[in-house]
Structures are given as C-alpha cells and as structure tokens.
Amino acid sequence: MDTKIASPKAASRREKGTGALTVAPPAASRARVVSSEQKTPLRGALAGLSVESHEPIGKQIFRSLREAIFTGLLAPGTPLSEKEVSEAFQVSRQPVREAFIKLVEAGVLQVLPQRGTFVKRISPRKVREGRFIREAIEAAVVRKAADAITDAQLAELTANLREQKAAARLNDTAAFLACDEQFHFLIAQSIDCVAAWETIQDIKAQMDRVRYLSLHEVSPLDLLIKQHALIVSGLKAHDPDAAENAMRAHLREILVSLGPVAQLNPDWFEPDEPEAMRLML
C-alpha cells in the first residue's frame, strides 16, 4: 500500500470537500489548549471524513486517520478499533489493519499488548529529529531551485503567497496549512524533484502535529507568511545563500514553538529528553 500522503494540491481540494477526503478543521483562534480527557470519539471524527471510489481503500483510510490525528480530531490516548473503523468505512478489517501498521510506522499510533491501539502522544525528540532531516533536504532543494527556478514557477509561488494571506485574513487555519504544504511542494517541483518532498512526509509527521497546535499566538500566520516571503525573495534574486538561509530559519521556527506548545498542552506530549534536545538544536 502506498503510504505517501496526497500532493498538497490534493490536500487543498480535500479541505474544500471536492477531493478524496475532508476533515472538519479544528477551531484555532489561538494556540489550542486541549485536554486529553476531551477526546473526540472515533465515530465523531470519522463522521467528518468521506472517501472517493477511485483510490485504494487502504490508502484512503490511512490518510483519513492520519489527517484526523494531525488536526486533533483524534487526540492522544484515543483508542482505535479495527472493527469500528472497518464498520465506519464499510470495508473488511484487512485494509484497516494495513493502515494501522503504516500509522504505527509513522509514529502516530501505538499498540499496547492486551490493551489495544491508541493515538500516540507527540515525541519532542521525534519533532526535532524530523525537523533536522527535513531542513537538510529542503535546504538542498531550495538552494538548487534558486539557480533553476523559472519566472512561471516564481509566479506560482507568488500566487500561493497571496492565497496564504487570504487564508490568514479569514483566520482559516486549514486553508493556510494546505497552502503551506503546496508552497514547499512547488519548490521541490521547480527542480523536478517531487520525490524529495514525498520522502519527508512521514519524517515530518510529528512536526505537522505540532503545527496544528502552534498557530496564531505561538507561531502566528503572519510570521510564517513573512518567512515564506523571504524564501521567495531569495529565489527571485536567484541567490542560493539567501534562499537557503531563509528556508533554514523558517524550518527552525518549530524549535521556538515546541516548548510553549508542549507547556500549553502537556497531556499531548511525551516527556522530553534533554540530552537529545541539545544534540538536535
């Protein structure tokens, strides 16, 4: 089964309800403080999901549950039942089991012997590791893009920035995050290296969960848009150093927001590991 998430454009379509999957976005007027006791029941979360027949059902279930976890519809500690999910999608348990395995591999589900399968808490160490690997890949990508990007591709990035600003004005977190995904995807696409973006999808899984919790007060949309604009400026100037430095600064924003977000949502995070933290800064 293919475990990669859909392209950012597809993700954007899903947010509009016209693609394979739609998830009702979480309210995000501030950095959300959510108790693990306030878990959305599984059936309630799945009620916001829809499937499209042309995709393999296992892939749809994987992406549906992954997105529900990332957006907080399924909070840490929420139990997941193969039986309940299979009934919700009206499929056999086999594709559900396959989706569960992939989610365990992505680090967002855990299986406790004799107890069941549960949404896993966020690991700060995994967030930092994912950020470290993602930065290495995207810094190399944007550096190459600064030399190779075309005017038409720059126009696409500029249009994407406008969409980000429009989403921010409407306080539409889901739309902004879809634009953010597409922004990074477009840079990889500009050097014909979409595989680089696909490679980091599972690597950045823990980062994505923090992003949904950090927007507004901790990492406000306007700040992220300014960081994106600096990346585009470096690309427009065909300045590899400027583009790379802007990308590195942008991806290190997660290190700034991680501590405050963990303090606001302690039940969502595993205990930190100070030794690992020093190594990954």
Results as ranks from 00 to 15, higher is better:
residue 141 V to H: 01
residue 121 R to F: 00
residue 156 E to V: 10
residue 111 V to H: 13
residue 168 A to V: 01
residue 148 A to E: 10
residue 123 S to E: 01
residue 116 G to N: 02
residue 119 V to A: 04
residue 173 T to L: 14
residue 119 V to N: 04
residue 157 L to A: 05
residue 135 E to N: 12
residue 159 A to Y: 06
residue 158 T to R: 05
residue 159 A to E: 11
residue 159 A to I: 07
residue 111 V to K: 15
residue 107 G to E: 03
residue 101 I to S: 12
residue 172 D to K: 02
residue 132 F to A: 09
residue 130 G to E: 10
residue 106 A to E: 04
residue 128 R to M: 12
residue 97 R to D: 14
residue 154 L to F: 09
residue 105 E to D: 15
residue 174 A to P: 11
residue 164 Q to V: 06
residue 162 R to C: 05
residue 150 T to G: 05
residue 164 Q to A: 08
residue 161 L to I: 12
residue 144 K to M: 11
residue 128 R to C: 05
residue 166 A to G: 04
residue 96 V to W: 01
residue 139 A to T: 01
residue 145 A to K: 00
residue 117 T to L: 13
residue 124 P to W: 02
residue 120 K to F: 08
residue 156 E to L: 13
residue 128 R to Y: 02
residue 96 V to Q: 04
residue 170 L to W: 00
residue 132 F to R: 11
residue 136 A to M: 07
residue 146 A to W: 02
residue 158 T to G: 13
residue 117 T to Q: 07
residue 166 A to K: 05
residue 127 V to S: 06
residue 160 N to Y: 00
residue 161 L to D: 15
residue 125 R to Y: 07
residue 152 A to E: 15
residue 157 L to V: 04
residue 117 T to I: 15
residue 169 R to I: 03
residue 173 T to S: 13
residue 142 V to G: 11
residue 103 L to P: 06
residue 128 R to K: 10
residue 96 V to P: 00
residue 147 D to V: 14
residue 158 T to F: 04
residue 164 Q to F: 08
residue 106 A to T: 01
residue 126 K to H: 09
residue 131 R to E: 13
residue 98 E to Y: 04
residue 116 G to S: 07
residue 123 S to K: 09
residue 131 R to F: 09
residue 139 A to Q: 07
residue 121 R to M: 07
residue 138 E to S: 04
residue 120 K to Y: 11
residue 111 V to F: 11
residue 113 P to F: 02
residue 137 I to C: 12
residue 110 Q to Y: 00
residue 96 V to C: 09
residue 94 Q to W: 06
residue 137 I to F: 08
residue 124 P to C: 13
residue 103 L to Q: 09
residue 163 E to W: 02
residue 147 D to K: 12
residue 96 V to I: 09
residue 165 K to L: 08
residue 141 V to R: 00
residue 123 S to C: 02
residue 133 I to C: 05
residue 117 T to V: 15
residue 139 A to K: 05
residue 158 T to M: 09
residue 97 R to Q: 14
residue 150 T to Y: 03
residue 138 E to V: 02
residue 128 R to W: 03
residue 129 E to R: 06
residue 139 A to D: 05
residue 167 A to Q: 03
residue 142 V to A: 07
residue 165 K to E: 11
residue 126 K to L: 14
residue 97 R to G: 13
residue 109 L to Q: 03
residue 140 A to Y: 06
residue 164 Q to I: 07
residue 174 A to I: 08
residue 117 T to P: 00
residue 134 R to E: 14
residue 125 R to S: 15
residue 138 E to M: 12
residue 129 E to Y: 01
residue 171 N to D: 05
residue 150 T to H: 02
residue 171 N to F: 00
